[in-house]
Structures are given as C-alpha cells and as structure tokens.
Design a protein around this nucleic acid. Sequence first.
DNA 1: ATGAAAGCGCTAACAC
DNA 2: GTGTTAGCGCTTTCAT
Lengths: 370, 370
Amino acid sequence: MVVWLTAGNVYNTQRGALVRVTITQVAAHAGVSVASASRALNGQAASAKTVAKVQHAAEELGYVADATAQSLKRGRTNQLAYAVADIGNPVYIEMMTAIERVVSASGYRLVMSSTGTSSSSVDVVRDLGRGYVDGMILSPLRVTDELLAVLAKAPVPVVVLGRLPDDASLDTVPADSFTAMRLVVEHLVAEGRGDIAFVNGPSDTTPGAFRRDGFAAAVVAHPAISARSVDADDFTITAGYAAARRALHDDHRPDAIVAANDLIGIGAIRAAEDLGLAVPGDITVTGVDNTELAGVIRPGLTSVDLGAEERGRVAAELLLARIAEPERPAHTVAVAPALVVRGSSHARSPNPAGTPDSEAPDLNNERPAR
Amino acid sequence: MVVWLTAGNVYNTQRGALVRVTITQVAAHAGVSVASASRALNGQAASAKTVAKVQHAAEELGYVADATAQSLKRGRTNQLAYAVADIGNPVYIEMMTAIERVVSASGYRLVMSSTGTSSSSVDVVRDLGRGYVDGMILSPLRVTDELLAVLAKAPVPVVVLGRLPDDASLDTVPADSFTAMRLVVEHLVAEGRGDIAFVNGPSDTTPGAFRRDGFAAAVVAHPAISARSVDADDFTITAGYAAARRALHDDHRPDAIVAANDLIGIGAIRAAEDLGLAVPGDITVTGVDNTELAGVIRPGLTSVDLGAEERGRVAAELLLARIAEPERPAHTVAVAPALVVRGSSHARSPNPAGTPDSEAPDLNNERPAR
DNA sequence: ATGAAAGCGCTAACAC
DNA sequence: GTGTTAGCGCTTTCAT
C-alpha cells in the first residue's frame, strides 16, 4: 500500500519510510528516456519540446535531484568544509561568514565542522578521505607532525587558515603574529609603559607559540622593557581571567598586560578591576583579533586586527582556485595587521590622575585602514 | 601514466585528478570478493582469517570508504544539519554546541548552514529534498506560510528550535517568551520601576512577535506601569544601540529598558551611558538569552535564560528519536526560563544615590537553577 | 536530438 | 562463511 501525502515530492510506504521521486519517474511521466530527462534538466542539448515536457513533469511531480547520486556520478559533492577547533571564539565566526559569502557565490554549500568537541583536527582531515566534501579550510589550533602528514596526503584540497612550517607546501593564510606583537609593544612604549605581563593562550598551540615568540622579539628591540609571561589554559575569557590574576598576584605589579587574544584580554581587564586596578589608569590591557567584543566592553579593548574577514575571504578564494587547478603552486597570502586603539590604553602617555579618556562608542566595528 | 604519490590512499592520474582506493582494490589485494571485504569492514559475519586479511589490505592501501557511495546505497547520509538565520548571535552558537554534542555521540556529522547570508530558511528546507542530510534542526527568524508549507512536506525530519503555530504538527522546542517577559516585568516592579521602554527586535520575526506580546501581557497585569515600544532593525548590538537612542530621545525618559535579547540590551546600556544616564542608577536595562556576554560587560546585564543549551540538546534528541521512529507523534518540549539578576538592575529598589552595587565577576557563566 | 546501456562505489539479497 | 549479482539515482558515452 502506498499513500500519497501531497502533490509534493514524497510519499509514504507502509514501512513509514519516505521515498523520493526519481528521474526515472519524471522521464516516464514526460514520455522520454531518462537520458533525455537528465539532459533537459541540466541544460544540455535537447529540443525545446523535450525540455518543456520534462520541466513540466518535474514540476508536477515535485522532483528534486538527489545530491548523493549526483555526487557519486559526478565525482564531486559541491560541498566544502570549514573546520575550526574553537567555535566559541567570535573571530572564527567572522572568518566563517566571509568564507561562506565566497563559496556560496560559487555554488558550494559550506559545512562547518567544529573539531575540538568530538574529534581532533587530524580526525577531521582524515575524514576527508570519505569524500563528503570537495575541499576544506582548516583553522588548526595545534599543528602536529601527525597533522602535517595527514595534510600532505589529503585526498582533496585543503587550505590552512593559520601558520604552517615553511616547508609544508600548502595554501595558507597565516596570521602575522610578529608584526601584531610589534605593533602592540611599540604602542605600549609610546604610552610610557615598560613593565609588561604577557598573558598567552596555551604555548603549545600555533597561535600561542607565534604570539609568544613575536612578543619576545618585539621586546628585545626595546631594552628598557621588562617582561614576563604566563599561559592561560585556553583562549577564553575565563581562562584569561584566571591567568591574569596569577600575573597580577606577584609582589610587584606590571603596568601593562598584553593578551594573546581579545577573550583573554577581556578576562584580564576584569581581573585587573577586581584587584582594584584602574584600566588604563593603573594598567594598560591589549588584545588581539579586534573582534566586535573589543568595541563593546568598557573600557574598549585596544586590539590588533589580524584581518580575520579578509583572511577568510582569501582562504576561500585560494580553495576555489585550487579546486579549479589542482596542480597550481602553493600560495601563502599575508594580510597586514593593524592596531586599533581603544580605551584600555592611552594614545600617548597615561593621564596623571588615571582618569579614563572620554570615549565614543565603537559600535559600528569598523575595520581600520592598513 | 599513473604516478603513486605515497603509500596513502590517493594517486595521481595524468589529468591531475585525485583517484581514490576502492573496496574492489582492497578485495583484490586481500584475495577475497568485494562482498567479503564489505562484510569484514562492517563487522558482519566473516571468518577471523578473512577479517584479518581484509583489514591488513585496507590498512596497506589506506582505504577509506566513500561516504557518497555508502549514502547512496544505504539511503542515508549520517549527516544532520543545523540551520540558523543569525550566526552572529552567540545564543545560536551555544545551541549548536549542545546539538553537536548529542548528534556526534550518535555517529552523525553536523552540518551548520547559515541561512540569512545566501539563502532563506525556505530555500534551506527546500534543499533538504536533495537528500544531503538525514534530518535538520531549524531556528527560523520568520515563520511564513510558505515556510510552513515547505516544512509540512519536508522529505526528512525537521525539528524547529523556536515557536510555531499550534496547528503545525512538528517537533518543536519553543522559547517561552511569555514567561520570560513576565519574569522581567515582575523584577522591574519589585525594583520600583514603572516607566518601561521595550526595545524589541523586528516585530515581524517570530521571537520579536512573541516577546512583544509577552511583554504586553505582562504589563497588563500591572496597571501602574506605563510602557512604550520601539523596534530595532535586527537583534544586534548596533541596532539595539540605535533603537535605544530613539527610545531615550523623547522629552520624558523611562526608568527601565527591557530589551528583546542580550545584544540589543548591550546596545541599550551603551546608549544610556552615552546619554549620561547611569545604569542602573538612573535606568535599569534587561536582556534575554543570558549569553556569556551578559556576564562579561559592565554593568552585568540582567537577563532571562531561555535555556539555549538545554533546548539545543532536546531538539537534537527529538530529531534522533524521529529518525528512529518517523511515525511517532509530534512533540513540543518546553523549557522553563529563569531570570538572572546582574548589575544592570537592582535586586530590590534602587539605591538612593544611584551608586552601583558592588559586583562579583560573572565569569564562570553558570546557569541558574530553575 | 534521442534512447539504450554502462557504471560511479558500495551494500545486501541470494545462492552455494 | 563466501562469492555472484543486482541495484541505489544519476550522468554520460555511444549508437542511432
């Protein structure tokens, strides 16, 4: 027994399973062969009359081509993936939005898989072999040898949104952490700060390692600076708060906290305030990523924009280009960081009384010129 | 010419296309039939010797089963989708995280598609007919007749994370906006506020409509309250800021702003501050969703928790249950809202001098008991 | 321009 | 327990 539910594209068998209208039924309904139906539906050579008949039949039956069967036959899925470890960080959402805009304009569906929760980056890349996507953009938190090995023989193109060892010949859109940290340190020096606590994320992550090294390199250029470093457990507000408390618990207190990202920076502002320190009166705090949050909290968080949106867009374009031309040489595209000064630091040297500057709201979240 | 690249699972044809190792090659390598190979790989009846041979061959060749072919044959993709209109709102990320946890435990991959940017909810649901997922969870912003029609004949199960008309017999996990607004209004009354501006999101959205109506119903219960309402252009900080400026620009100023969600509420706090109003000294501000942001800004935003995480979890469970048993009756699961009081309002009546209460940081973002 | 038929990679009857 | 075979729904030669 078969019960038709609607004029739509499904009916119900006695087993309760939903069954779909196939191209065979469309062809029969139109009185043509399946080959003609397929051609008519895909805009291939077919007489106007055939096209009309087939389209009418498809319309009437509510036919929708099965993506799985098309994928199997065509050898591609029209689906791309963006895999990210830490979806709680708004900077990755920003990247995803930029990526989605580019790939959907090219007819691809974007699949977002959050590694971290259920599986590691390695698992995600390995899963690529299952062929459920035609390509992937990956923002890995940790680049292990195992990941590099899996990446090297990935069966579909992968673009890495982040930094890789130089000898990995893959398309990458790295963050320029060295320039970023240099901009921050120079800003602090101009402001008159000289005793800096660097609150990093985990040092064994790629961003953690490069921001630490970038900070160290920047500090070396200014012999007057004294600096220390602590690691937060991860790149979150909560972990940043805890790590900043540790950094501020010593007998002597720094006059600046440089956070490895905005979330840690926000946690650091809260920690300083809870210790009775005025920001930026007693202590300056800076972040990295220039997320919308940086402009929303008070005081606004001075932050380095690493170009998340542009990097996302570029990564998507690199992926599409590689899919179109698999043998093209690997590209690495750099995006210049830019410092955005807000109320958590002073533009020049600190006010004598520690009074915060008056501050216009930063709600439009504009990106600075570079 | 065929060039083997590695001992891995791909080799390169002269066309540059990547070709995959198939089960046929594994079977040949192991000296068994493809059927035996398939059985061995899938844990079906097979002798220990066969299993060993096949697994060894698969390992050696780097075989990974093709998801597309499996899907076509099995009639399911093992992929579920979460479609959301506004990925910039952290409450949806929170839901997604909860959903992902549940579905990945059941062996499904979660695909996140952000409607809004490239396509509408209707398009996304219609695309379901292409069979690229086995089911979907949808958080629609606007429930049109067209959407309901498409939903009614969706070829795969759909669970709606949001409110639907009562006669739509679908699995839903609505937000209880009426209770939410009642909790807020009662809190304001206890606080001694009586002149309320309601800053809604767009009224033509489902949450907008229900929060507006819920607010109206709550106000009616308190004749002493006078209330007005403005719509923000969307549920964002920026739009909330602009709308709150309008609400506060009148000749007479309210003593409370009730925002339809946290983002609008944060914008409202900024708007009040820019107008020289102390929060909560001169004016109370409240939000809805109890996102992490509410605990991060200063003053902390008093907010109603609509149970995003629990609702996401429940929606995922409903979807899995329906996939397992397609003919089961439609369920609607309600989650009780709970008010979380923070510094943007007073626990009781306002301090005479408008001095903000001292406030512990709300960084662990705990959910209140209900 | 159209139809018959092969086959993408896999699983599941079915026969042995 | 294992091999042979059919076929999921579609696109694409290859003849006609």
